[in-house]
Nucleic acid binder design. Structure first.
Lengths: 144, 144
DNA sequence: CAGCTAATTGACAATGATTGTGAACTAGCA
DNA sequence: TGCTAGTTCACAATCATTGTCAATTAGCTG
């Protein structure tokens, strides 16, 4: 546990927004200006490998890191990329028997996509013309 | 609808494995050797924007394209990246009332992660030493 | 304390997926 | 025939992430 690692760990836990590696980097640099982005990535990967944090790829362009260890799901804003934890349990969600195509399922991940409060408010304003040119470039067509 | 676009469309529908852009490129090149990867990307994006296909980012490193338009979910192999459609409906899966953090949810996506039949078989062979160095480099720690 | 070893750091370049740019081509039409 | 708009594609650029490897550091041994 080097100071760098501690700082990364703290930055992650101080945040509630599932920061990207870049965001963690910015935070950590405030108190440790010499740290490199490489070290942040390395530390995040190490922490994830140790099971201390989760690495999430939610289709927002870059990975996001989640200090929440318990089972939970996510609300993702398709407009700004914001990610919100959802501490709910969905007991009925399992692969129907006989439909598993031989998969050994080890993990179930539910992603609710939509617009967060802020982006929904913005979109109410200019709902006609520029509806697809919002803050964030990720406007993937359909996600089933 | 240019010949290129038709060919991309056909390649996608002829496949059941949710090909990556690169895979579509390889298929199309067989019958149209001069097509460029750029055109394939462009066409896939256009088709996705038109709602003809879905673009999926399932954390396997590259986007995968899915000609299946109906509502369905996915089985993803964490080892080889294979993606299998799952035509099941989960009626109970909605954000609990009062827990939506102001999100306007428009889409719900369930991903079951695990090992496909083939990768499970391989892993039965060398289950001790090289368990984390499999075909595919994506061994993200935990996905909640 | 000197010396050794192993782990960590960080500068730099490389990778892989994807997109921007802009010139060449093509189809349809006046 | 000449114009125009949409497509294609070669090339370079971008973005997130990782490889490499020398320099630094911590911790241990004697």
């Amino acid at each position: 546990m080097t100071p760098q690692r501690q700082s990364v760990f703290r930055a992650l836990h101080a945040s509630t927004v599932h920061p990207t590696a870049e965001a963690v980097y910015d935070t950590v640099r405030a108190e440790m200006p010499t740290i490199s982005l490489r070290t942040v990535y390395q530390t995040l990967n190490d922490l994830a490998a140790m099971g201390e944090i989760n690495a999430l790829d939610l289709g927002t362009g870059s990975a996001r890191f989640d200090p929440n260890n318990g089972p939970h799901h996510h609300l993702v804003c398709v407009s700004c990329g914001r990610v919100q934890d959802l501490a709910a349990d969905f007991p009925g969600v399992t692969v129907p028997v006989g439909n598993d195509f031989g998969f050994e399922v080890t993990d179930t991940e539910i992603v609710f996509r939509g617009r967060c409060r802020d982006c929904a408010a913005v979109n109410d304003d200019d709902r006609d013309a520029s509806a697809s040119r919002t803050t964030n470039p990720h406007e993937e067509a359909g996600r089933a």
